[in-house]
C-alpha cells in the first residue's frame, strides 16, 4: 500500500508589482501570472515621482501582457477625496476602456462606481481597505460584488484558513517585500509629519520630505519633515526614514528602540505550501517602487519556487535574502500570534 498522499494543492497565481513599463515587461517575462500597477496620480497608494503609468503606457503594457497570457490589474486604491473624487472615477474608466483584467480598490465610493458603471469589470478589494474579518470581507462582496480580497498582513496562516471557509471570494496574500506595520488605509502618520496623506495623495514618507543631517558626533540623522525618525552611527548603513520603522524614546525604556517594527522585509517563502493549503488563490509580491532588476529577480525566484512546490519538490529561495531590507527578513504576523 502506498503512503497517504497530501491533499492536492491548487496552483496559486503569482501577482507581481510594476512601477514602470520596463518593470512590467520584466515581470511578465519572468513568469508573473498577473502584474499590478497604477496611474501617475493620487489614485494609487504608490504615487511616487518617476513611477507609474500614463494611460498610453498602460495601454501598450496591457497589450504586451495579454499577448503573453498575463493579466494586468490596475490599483485605484487610495481614497477618492472630495472635491476631486472624479479623478478616481476617471482611473476606473481608463482601466475599463483598456481592458484591464481587474481594478483593485479600497474606497466604498469607488467600489460603488465600478459596480454601477462597469459591472463587467472584475473588482479586487485592496489591502488598503483593511478588511480583516469575514464580516468585513462579506460586506464588500455583498454590496459591490468583490471577486477577490487582498488580506492585510496581520493574520496567521491558521486565521487565513478560517477566513477562507467563511467568505465567498478568492484570497490574495502578500508573500514578499515591505511589511507595513499599520493597518493599511487607516494611517495618517505621514500626513501628520509632512502634510501629504497616504490615504488621499497615495504617499508614505515621501522623498521630498527626507533629509539626512550629520550630527556633531559624526552620526547621521534621518529626518522626515521636522522629525528625526532614526539616527545611524558612522559605521552603520543609513536606512530610509519611514515613521513606523524609526527608533524613538519612551519613558518606560532607556535609549532608543524600534517602537513599531525593525526595518525588515516580509518573506513567506518557507510558508508557501501552508498558504496555498489555507486556500490562498494568489500570492502577491510587494514593491511597485522597486527597480526592474529587483522585480525580475524576485519574480523569477518565486516562479521557480511555486513550480517546485506544485511538483512536490523542496523550493530553494535562498537568493531572496539578498533582496530583503538590510538583509533582514521576517514571517511577520503569518507564523504566530506572538508577532502582535
Amino acid at each position: 500500500m502506498s503512503p497517504p498522499q497530501p491533499p492536492r494543492l491548487n496552483r496559486p497565481e503569482l501577482i507581481c508589482p510594476a512601477g514602470t513599463p520596463a518593470a512590467l515587461r520584466a515581470a511578465v517575462d519572468a513568469g508573473a501570472d498577473a502584474v499590478y500597477c497604477g496611474l501617475q496620480n493620487a489614485t494609487n497608494a504608490r504615487n511616487f515621482p518617476g513611477l507609474n503609468f500614463t494611460p498610453d503606457a498602460l495601454a501598450q503594457s496591457i497589450t504586451y501582457a495579454h499577448e503573453r497570457d498575463t493579466k494586468v490589474l490596475l490599483a485605484v486604491n487610495s481614497f477618492a477625496t472630495a472635491p476631486g473624487a472624479k479623478l478616481w472615477q476617471d482611473a476606473v474608466d481608463i482601466a475599463a476602456s483598456l481592458n484591464a483584467d481587474a481594478v483593485i480598490v479600497a474606497d466604498i465610493g469607488v467600489a460603488q462606481y465600478v459596480a454601477e458603471n462597469h459591472p463587467g469589470l472584475r473588482l479586487h478589494l485592496s489591502v488598503q481597505a483593511g478588511a480583516s474579518s469575514p464580516e468585513a470581507i462579506r460586506y464588500y462582496c455583498r454590496e459591490f460584488g468583490v471577486s477577490r480580497v487582498v488580506l492585510p498582513r496581520i493574520l496567521t496562516v491558521t486565521e487565513i484558513s478560517a477566513i477562507h471557509d467563511e467568505i465567498p471570494c478568492e484570497i490574495e496574500a502578500f508573500v514578499f517585500g515591505n511589511i507595513g506595520m499599520m493597518a493599511e488605509g487607516r494611517c495618517s502618520l505621514t500626513n501628520y509629519v509632512t502634510g501629504q496623506s497616504t490615504n488621499m495623495d497615495g504617499v508614505c514618507s515621501p522623498a521630498s520630505a527626507v533629509q539626512y543631517v550629520k550630527n556633531a558626533d559624526e552620526s547621521l540623522a534621518a529626518k522626515l519633515g521636522e522629525f528625526e525618525i532614526d539616527c545611524f552611527a558612522e559605521n552603520e548603513s543609513a536606512g530610509y526614514p519611514t515613521i513606523c520603522k524609526g527608533r524613538y524614546l519612551t519613558p518606560a525604556r532607556s535609549g532608543t528602540y524600534y517602537a513599531f517594527e525593525e526595518p525588515v522585509s516580509l518573506n513567506l517563502s518557507s510558508l508557501l505550501p501552508e498558504l496555498v493549503g489555507a486556500g490562498v488563490t494568489a500570492l502577491k509580491i510587494e514593491g511597485r517602487q522597486r527597480s526592474r532588476s529587483y522585480v525580475r529577480a524576485v519574480v523569477s525566484a518565486y516562479r521557480e519556487a511555486i513550480d517546485d512546490i506544485m511538483e512536490g519538490a523542496e523550493a530553494d529561495l535562498s537568493v531572496l535574502i539578498s533582496l530583503t531590507e538590510g538583509g533582514k527578513q521576517t514571517e511577520g504576523a503569518f507564523k504566530s500570534k506572538k508577532w502582535r
Binding site: S132, I154, M182, S188, Y192, T250, A252, F260, K337, K338
Partner: peptide, 21 residues
C-alpha cells in the same frame, strides 16, 4: 489627541517586551 494609525500589534506591550496576548 488625534488617532493617526491602528495596527494589529500592541505597541504598549512591545515597549515592555511583551506581546498582545
Amino acid at each position: 489627541r488625534m488617532s493617526l494609525a491602528l495596527s494589529a500589534r500592541c505597541y504598549h506591550a512591545r515597549a515592555y517586551g511583551r506581546t498582545k496576548d
